[in-house]
Amino acid sequence: MATNDYSLAELLTVCVSRELEDGGQGFIGLGTGGRAFTMAVGVPSVAAELARRHRGIDFTTQYGVTFEPDLKKTPANFADPYLLAWPSKAQVRVEECLEYFRRGKMTVGFTSGAQIDRRGNLNTVCIGSHDKPKVRLVGPIAQSDHCTYAKYTFVMMVQDPRVFVPKLDFRSALGHGDAAGDRRRLGVPGGGPRKVFTDLAIWGFDADGDMRVETLHPGATREDVVRTVGFDVVFADDLGATPAPTPEELRLIREEIDPEGLFLEARIA
């Protein structure tokens, strides 16, 4: 197996996997389809399983109300009746499932949005003014909760200048606010966004909460990043290359964790 022969989803999976911490708990939403599914559901799911198998860490996954489902028996369709029958360790009541956020039990929330600014604030409500929007979006859903309570969030999104914007049209979820220390000042308990995983790069945040590119994916250039982002891009001083998956990591993903591509190739209906 050639180690340079892997997909973007596999690359992101391995990167996310390496970031997960022993004893952690991650919340994965199920409300998306298509390419967004791979980013929001597929990558975190496989990453958590990979971290358990490859690094031997203890990590709890939570898919909405469902705790630690058996990925080997993942239904080919995520319609409710199938989800209901998905073998798993627990199914809790929905307000309880969100209370894991409130109680500070949630280590990492995997999240996304229609817009993100350089402070990691997110918008899932509208493009244009709120009262008479150009595009009305779905609404805040639980993003505000993720971003408020999780110890930190991983933002998963595809780079585009309309998405990576200098100013949000509506701030539905708090990232690092407007200035350093905003979260603490506002009394918001969670740590806010820690990483942004995209199709081109992995971003982190400096001590003041400003976004910066930390690694570039193989084949991606600084110009690619600048061209797809609507605000001034800061590159980390020690900008590196996103580390490639190892043969063992790829073997685990392809042969053991996701052999049918249900998650990383979004084959779940």
Partner: peptide, 23 residues
């Protein structure tokens, strides 16, 4: 997206009171 809802917001100024799931 929900298209009737979207149309009502974008052209008729439907009033929307925003919540997060927990609130």
């Amino acid at each position: 997206l929900a298209r009737n809802f979207r149309r009502a917001c974008e052209t008729d100024g439907l009033r929307v009171i925003e919540h997060s799931e927990t609130t």
